[in-house]
């Protein structure tokens, strides 16, 4: 009895979470202009989506901004962790506190404050300002993923490498880097996802000509290209689903190997 109740509860929440997404998926294969009645199976919205320059440009911007923002913030974040872990207690706590500000602050405040600063210093809003904004809010995620790995690190192995004649750079790449690599990878992936997902900060820091998927959806949602957006969301959902399944399987296999 208790078990059926639990099952029903899980099922209802699953329905709540997935029914809207599946509705969009089904509608994306619906032919014809009237979106509220089923006309027949068709791939026309997919064809139109791939032919739509606006959507393709926005998709390109989203991916390239996410890639560069995640790469830059990973490099800056890892360097920061190296520096911070060598600091004394007080400045370390202060910096980790400052690191938390963008995480805790409301997106709208972060977005507005960055926009006002760019304009105040005479920087016009464009692709570059969006990228800088994304790097800014991605760095904290990288630091939060990498810092624990630095704490677990055995400092002696690095020192031993130096004693045995390795240069600091060589010792870093051969001794330290392999140990912190899992943190770097998860930090990069987290930064990438956060950048792809962001709408609010991009909304305020983008110039008139630049769109990401998020800002495009927001500006177009009341106009006529909605069926193309259904196709796009189906595509995004399937891509994300496949990537996460693969990641899950890989990490599962890895754990089995280790145990």
């Amino acid at each position: 009895m208790k078990k059926t109740f639990k099952g029903i509860y899980l099922f209802l929440i699953m329905l709540f979470l997935y029914l809207p997404i599946f509705t969009l998926m089904v509608l994306s294969f619906n032919g014809g202009k009237t979106m509220n009645a089923w006309v027949g199976f068709s791939l026309e919205w997919y064809e139109e989506m791939f032919a739509n320059r606006q959507i393709m440009e926005a998709l390109g911007n989203t991916v390239s901004i996410a890639f560069w923002a995640a790469s830059a913030s990973t490099v800056i974040g890892v360097l920061a962790c190296m520096g911070i872990s060598a600091m004394k207690e007080k400045p370390r706590t202060l910096l980790m506190g400052l690191n938390n500000i963008p995480l805790l602050n409301a997106d709208i405040v972060t977005g507005i404050s960055l926009m006002l600063s760019f304009l105040m210093f005479g920087i016009s809003l464009n692709y570059g300002t969006v990228l800088m904004a994304h790097i800014t809010f991605c760095i904290p995620y990288v630091i939060l993923s990498v810092m624990p790995k630095f704490r677990q690190l055995e400092n002696h192995t690095y020192e031993a490498a130096l004693d045995l004649g390795a240069t600091p750079a060589y010792a870093f790449f051969k001794v330290v880097l392999p140990d912190i690599m899992p943190g770097i990878v998860s930090g990069f992936l987290l930064a990438f996802t956060m950048s792809v997902d962001d709408f609010v900060i991009t909304h305020f820091t983008r110039g008139a000509g630049i769109n990401t998927i998020s800002t495009l959806i927001y500006s177009q949602v009341r106009v006529g290209i909605r069926p193309m957006l259904y196709a796009l969301s189906t595509l995004i959902f399937v891509t994300v689903f496949i990537i996460l399944i693969v990641v899950n399987i890989i990490s599962h296999k890895k754990e089995e190997k280790e145990s």
């Binding site: 969009l24 997902d197 959806i217 949602v221 957006l229 969301s233 994300v240 599962h252």
Partner: peptide
């Protein structure tokens, strides 16, 4: 291990504007 949890977290990875749009349609 954790597959069920994964199912409940998965929608988080989909753009929230698309998810909001879905409710508009519904």
């Amino acid at each position: 291990k954790g597959f069920m949890v994964f199912i409940f977290i998965l929608p988080m990875w989909m753009n929230f504007l698309l998810r909001t749009m879905a409710w508009q349609v519904l």
